[in-house]
Simulated assay, not measured.
Amino acid sequence: MDCKGEPVPKKAKTVRSAGKVMASVFWDAKGILFIDYLEKGKTINGPYYASLLDQLKQKIQEKRPGLVKKKILFHQDNAPCHKSVIAMEKINELGFELVPHAPYSPDLAPSDFSLFPNLKKFHAGKKYGSDSEVIAATNAYFDELDEKDYRDGIKGLEHRWTKCIQLEGDYVEK
């Protein structure tokens, strides 16, 4: 009881949800090629990203064997680890053709306008007891998407790029 004779309100016991899990998602018009979940306490730097690119090349060979002898168009944003000397050397070594990404244009990254908004809605309000539960739920979410969802995301890049040019570099989504 407090000093006025009223009972003290009970506090609800809360269960902490798992923290954030950093994922690097590599995908194309047919679906997910692979997802890397960053280990807690690690950061993505040039060498780490270059190792992801090696893994991507391997996954392309496994999942898209028809592309092995073709030029791979590769799109990434301008994050420092993506633009590092070691990452750029790896992109050249692997024979990827880098599709340019305008500076300060998050609305031109297909993951940001296509994949991640609905993934965020999927996770909204859910509580996970561990990172492995978050990862399993995320993998299940991507497994349930249709090829059309991925294809539409890639097609959206062309539309947004055209709109960005029309807007003379201004944000597409305002």
Rank of each mutant, 00 (worst) to 15 (best):
F142K: 02
K126S: 11
I135A: 00
K69W: 12
E97C: 09
L167Q: 14
R160Q: 00
K4P: 06
M1I: 06
E39H: 11
P106E: 00
K148Y: 10
L38K: 03
A109N: 06
T162P: 04
H75Q: 09
E6W: 14
I135D: 05
K59S: 12
I91D: 12
D152R: 05
Y37P: 06
S114G: 01
Y171L: 12
E133Q: 08
A18H: 07
A29T: 09
G169R: 13
H101V: 05
K174Q: 12
S114A: 07
K155N: 05
K10E: 10
Y48G: 08
D107F: 02
S111Q: 00
K11T: 10
K30Q: 14
D112G: 01
S17A: 07
M22I: 05
G169H: 11
T14H: 13
L108Q: 07
K70A: 10
L167A: 13
K174Y: 11
P100C: 05
T138R: 08
V172Q: 07
P9L: 05
A124R: 14
A87N: 03
G95F: 01
G156Q: 02
S111F: 01
L108S: 04
Y37T: 09
Y150H: 02
V8K: 15
D112S: 02
G95S: 03
W27K: 01
E147Q: 13
N78P: 01
V8G: 10
H101I: 02
I35M: 13
N139G: 00
A79D: 15
L145R: 08
K174H: 11
N92L: 13
A102P: 15
D149F: 15
A50M: 09
V68R: 03
S84A: 15
A136I: 09
P7C: 11
L119C: 02
A50V: 07
D146T: 14
N78M: 03
G5T: 06
Q58M: 12
K59R: 11
D131M: 04
S132F: 12
K11D: 08
F116V: 09
V8Q: 13
F122I: 06
K13I: 14
Y128A: 08
D28Q: 03
K13H: 11
G169E: 12
L167M: 14
N45Y: 12
L67N: 05
I44W: 06
Y171F: 15
V21S: 00
S17Y: 08
L115Q: 01
D149L: 02
G46P: 05
G41P: 15
I154T: 00
G66V: 08
G5L: 09
